[in-house]
Amino acid sequence: MKKYSQEILKDISDIDGIILKGRSPSCGIKDVKVYSGMEKSPVIGKSMGLFAAEMEKHFPYLPIEEEGRLTNLIIREHFFTKLYAIFNFKKMAQNKSIKKLADYHAKNKYLYFAYNQTLKNKLGSIVANHEKLETNIVLDNYFKEMVKLFSNLPSKKNYINAYQHIFGYFSKFASKEEKVFILQLMEKYRDGKIDKSAIASILKV
C-alpha cells in the first residue's frame, strides 16, 4: 500500500486540499485501528491510514480531512477556510508582487487575528520585508507561516476579539441600540446560541 500510494502521488501536484474516505483502513486520518498481528489479533492502538499518511507526508501544508468529519460545522469551516486561503494565495503569488502580497495580507489580517495573533504579526513583518529579500523568498516565507497559522482551530475568544476590533472602526457611527445589538450577538456566540456567521453578516466580513 505504501509503494502504491507513492506511485499515485507522483502524478498529483496542483491541489489545494484533500478529502479522504472516512473510517477507511487506508484513508482514515485519526481512528484507523492498529492490530498486533494478521489474524484475529487484538487492537493495540489507533493511527492514520497508510494512504492518508503518505498524502500528509507528500502535502504537509494542505488541509486534509475525512468526509465524515466534515459534517461537523466547525471542522468543515476550518477545512475550507484553509483551503481557500491556500488557493487564493497561490493565485495571488503568480503575480510575484510584494504589493499584491500586501493587499492579500490586508484583506485577511482579521481572519489571521482570529486564528493566531502572534503569527499574524509575523506575517505582517514578512510583508514589510525590512531585510529587502527577493520576492520569491518573501512569498515562500509568508506561505510557510500562513500554513502554520491555520494548523489549529481558532477559539471563540479570538474570533470575538477580531470582531470587536472590526466593530471599533465604525462603532462611533452606530447608535446606542446598534451597539447593544452587536454586543448581544457576540455574547450569544460566546454562549453557543448562534453561529459566528450571524455576526460576520452584520459586520460584512
Rank of each mutant, 00 (worst) to 15 (best):
Q164M: 13
K179V: 03
F113Q: 13
I12N: 00
G37D: 09
A85S: 13
E39N: 00
I86E: 08
E39D: 03
K21T: 11
N152Y: 12
Y84H: 09
D103S: 11
I137S: 02
P25L: 00
N136A: 07
K188Y: 12
A106W: 01
F51N: 04
L73P: 00
T81L: 03
S151H: 12
F143S: 04
N152C: 11
D31Q: 07
F143H: 05
G22M: 05
Y104W: 11
F59T: 07
S171D: 10
S97G: 02
G168A: 09
A102G: 07
K204C: 09
F80C: 05
K193W: 01
V147N: 13
T118H: 08
C27W: 10
Y84E: 00
I74N: 05
N161Q: 14
F167A: 15
A85K: 13
M186W: 13
L9G: 07
A174G: 03
K122V: 15
I199K: 11
K157R: 04
K99N: 10
H165S: 06
D16R: 07
K40G: 01
M186N: 14
Y115N: 06
G37H: 07
F170P: 04
E134A: 07
Y112M: 13
F59W: 06
K109M: 12
Y142M: 09
F150Y: 15
F80E: 07
L183N: 13
F173D: 11
G124N: 10
M92W: 09
L123V: 04
F167M: 15
N161E: 14
V138D: 12
G68Q: 11
L183E: 15
E77G: 02
D191P: 01
S151L: 07
I199M: 14
N108L: 15
L149M: 12
A93C: 08
N141L: 12
N136I: 10
S175E: 01
F87A: 12
K157I: 05
K148F: 13
K30E: 00
L203T: 12
I86P: 08
K99E: 13
I12A: 00
K188C: 06
S13C: 00
K96A: 03
I182N: 05
N129Q: 10
V43P: 01
D103V: 06
I15C: 11
K30D: 03
K196Q: 14
S175W: 00
V180G: 00
L73M: 03
F80H: 07
M1W: 01
I64L: 14
F89R: 06
F87E: 11
I98H: 06
G192Q: 05
A162M: 12
I86W: 08
Q164E: 14
N95H: 13
I44M: 02
K57G: 09
K204L: 14
S24T: 02
H78D: 15
V34I: 03
T135V: 11
K33R: 09
V34T: 01
C27V: 04
K10H: 06
L111C: 04
I160E: 07
